[in-house]
Amino acid sequence: MAYEAGALEATLAAAAGGDSALFAELRASYAESVMRQADLLARSRCDGNWHLAAMRLKGLAASFHSMKLLVLAEEALQSAPGEPAVIRKLKAYLTEFSVD
């Protein structure tokens, strides 16, 4: 699942209001938040912790208009705790996001 530049970047740009430093800070904050929840998913061994981290990812996706992250969060919600495929996809999403 690749990172999408469209709506997410537009949301960040609108929030930054033309301030490139603020844009970079918001982008970094988004990536850090996704990374934190992906890490929590990777360490989750019970349904409750897994579900909570997946719901937080879903909230981030909605807040930042990221359809790719929303799809990944939904996939996590439908998966068993510790599902390695979901975690790999989230890490790949973050890698692509940090490269762009």
Rank of each mutant, 00 (worst) to 15 (best):
L72M: 08
M67G: 11
E32P: 00
R45P: 00
L77S: 10
A62E: 14
N49C: 10
E25W: 04
P81A: 04
A92P: 01
D47I: 09
K68V: 13
A21Q: 12
A21I: 05
A80W: 00
L77P: 07
L90T: 07
A21K: 11
K89R: 15
Y30W: 13
P81R: 03
L12T: 07
Y30V: 13
I87M: 03
A85R: 15
A24R: 14
A53E: 05
L77F: 08
R88L: 10
E83G: 02
A73W: 03
W50G: 04
S66T: 09
G17T: 08
A73I: 08
A92T: 13
L40E: 12
A73G: 09
A14C: 02
G59A: 13
C46H: 10
Q78A: 15
M35F: 10
G48E: 15
D47H: 10
A73M: 06
Y30A: 10
G18F: 08
L40A: 14
S79D: 07
A53D: 07
M67Q: 14
K89S: 14
C46A: 10
W50M: 08
L77I: 10
C46G: 07
A92D: 13
N49Y: 02
A42P: 00
A28Q: 14
Q37G: 00
K68D: 11
L94S: 06
A28V: 01
S29W: 05
G48V: 12
L94H: 03
F64K: 01
A85M: 10
H65L: 10
E75P: 00
A53R: 04
A80R: 12
H51P: 00
Q78L: 11
A53K: 04
L69E: 03
D39F: 05
L40T: 10
A42V: 01
A54Q: 07
A10S: 14
K91A: 11
E74Q: 15
E74T: 12
L41P: 01
K58P: 00
G48S: 13
D19M: 07
L40V: 10
L72H: 03
G18D: 07
E32R: 15
A42D: 11
L57N: 02
L94W: 06
L94F: 04
L90S: 05
G17F: 05
L72Q: 03
L12D: 02
A16W: 04
V86F: 06
L57R: 07
A13L: 11
S29K: 09
V86T: 12
A54D: 06
A28N: 11
L57A: 07
Q78Y: 01
T11M: 11
G17C: 09
L22D: 01
A61C: 06
R43P: 00
A28K: 13
G18W: 06
L90R: 02
C46F: 00
A92C: 02
E75M: 11
H51I: 00
V86P: 04
V34Y: 03
R45F: 02
R56G: 00
L40N: 09
A62L: 13
A54L: 05
M35S: 14
A38F: 01
R56W: 03
A21S: 11
L90D: 04
D47C: 01
R56P: 00
R56Q: 15
D19F: 09
T11L: 09
